[in-house]
Amino acid sequence: MTPADQSRPPRRDLSFEREPARRVFASELREARVQFRDGTDEKSPSYVLLPTGERCNRVFIVGAFTEKKRQGDQNIFYRARVADPTGTFSVMAGSYQPEAMQQIARIEPPAFVAVVGKPSLYETPDGAIIVSVRAESATIVEREVRDCWVLDTAQKTLDRIDAIGKTPDSERAAQEYHIDPVVYRKMVYDALSQLKM
């Protein structure tokens, strides 16, 4: 109606928006060192900044479930390892993720699994930083789903590399990580090469 009306942001943006699940290879996620909150609220979403320059509150990963460990006495939780062509994701599920925990309890390695979860950074007593994914769900899937995921993740990673320097997140990542895009291209190429032609 008027410029004043148009400048008002559409209200539907204020409503809850689900965070998309980013696609990232294990050897990239493993290098993440920056975690931040968008806002000061306790409930503001927390993001891990990927080295290729995108914030990431949730990930979707598909790989080989190779190992699981049950830990804790009173508060049982599971730690699992999920391998993709580039490396290994550390996945965990505790009593706050009952669905994922029950699913992981039933999965016997080895198997292809699809995991949806939230990445976060932990510091070990000796000062090393570990990236772990708190699973929201973990489902056994077919090999073809893994192959589709490698293509999908390769494409998204290349898209991020191509956008370096063009988004605020990627500029921030450039300052934090000083990555060499060539190394990441090579990682994508190697991952793709492992699929049957």
Partner: peptide, 16 residues
């Protein structure tokens, strides 16, 4: 969805 070999080839070219 099914695995798309054409997309696979394109991505290999793009990455390499």
């Amino acid at each position: 969805c099914t695995f798309n070999p054409g997309k696979h080839a394109d991505l290999l070219n793009r990455a390499g």
